[in-house]
Design a protein around this nucleic acid. Sequence first.
DNA 1: TCGTCCATTGACCAATTGGTAAAAATTTTA
DNA 2: TAAAATTTTTACCAATTGGTCAATGGACGA
Lengths: 207, 207
Amino acid sequence: MTQIPVKKPSRIQTRNRRLILDAALEVFSTDGYGGATLDAIAKGAGLSKPNLLYYFDGKTEIYVTLLSQLLETWLDPLIELNPEGDPVEELLGYVRNKLDMALELPSESKLFAGEILQGAPRITDHLKHELKPLFDSKCRVIQDWIDAGRLAPVDPVHLIFSIWATTQHYADFGAQISVLLDDQDPAARAAKHLEQMFRSLLEPVNH
Amino acid sequence: MTQIPVKKPSRIQTRNRRLILDAALEVFSTDGYGGATLDAIAKGAGLSKPNLLYYFDGKTEIYVTLLSQLLETWLDPLIELNPEGDPVEELLGYVRNKLDMALELPSESKLFAGEILQGAPRITDHLKHELKPLFDSKCRVIQDWIDAGRLAPVDPVHLIFSIWATTQHYADFGAQISVLLDDQDPAARAAKHLEQMFRSLLEPVNH
DNA sequence: TCGTCCATTGACCAATTGGTAAAAATTTTA
DNA sequence: TAAAATTTTTACCAATTGGTCAATGGACGA
């Protein structure tokens, strides 16, 4: 029996890996992969650089660990899209959830966006094997809703793209929004606008 | 008289600065500011590194030059939004223009997105003094249309954000889209979807 | 054609980078 | 508590980075 030795991590390991990943998230999301340095991450985590490398095999491993953990969290709201629920409310709920995530976890959104922006060189596999199947399945759910006449005839694929784009925009382009809105908090009006927009798109005409 | 010597650039200067900026666009947009190297840009431009630095004062200057030139091109379609035209058609035309730009000039879009993502540390002033006034002015135009009953009552600010987000998404998240659509070209269906979405949002109910 | 200015190069540099090795300190286990 | 295992540090390194400088090569007008 080839038993893979999966020792449970010590308290110190759990704590330090957490410290490192937290620090790394900030550094990677504000400086990008290329601009981030192990020194900056080490400093942020309150550890020495060689100590960092005791817990992770290198810069890339920290980065990829972060991204794949992130992808899971990020996919959750999409998973929860319930085929049995009311189509319009399910989708508006999804919009709401994604917007809340973007507003509450902007660094995570930026980290992901930065990786995709650069061609997703380090997570293409994750996208293919985790995101894609879920995406296809949820597109089918939406198409079924449309076929049942419970949703206006939209393009499921591009509907999802539009939801992702508009919600994540509030995290990824936060710096631009800050300038344009003189640092006012966009949250409330953004939520209202997105609900209005997607409702007018999705509500079936014959009611 | 403090006369600034604005010699017109020689043919060689024009050519080489162009070569450098073209190469820099590719390098910066795929590697990010931090990940980009002068060596890579020099190689891409077919020049030696010291030769690069003969034309530009340093990495940052190349980058900022690129970004500010870019911002102008990028703002053009918004400028063309005509207060005298038909509101819905003007806005849908803007969507169309922005989508076409994103599809045709993805590197430019990515470069800009990358800078904003990192907090816009090098172009905040440009945003404040060029983008913001234009943005405010066009928001007023949209509000006037609404007040005149020629457009559904939307939030002008967030309408523009949604247009930017959805169109640029096809450039900035192209890598993700490629995976999800198995490399099919999204252009046609994206255009159709965006028109449907924004039309259903913008068309005034009383016709 | 000559001299002046522009363009280009090779050699170089200090600082920073990701990463290593081995010893020292600390925690856990028996 | 002593040995074993884990964690941390100190000292270090080779490669890469953005950038300089003096010397050389070319373009071009007088």
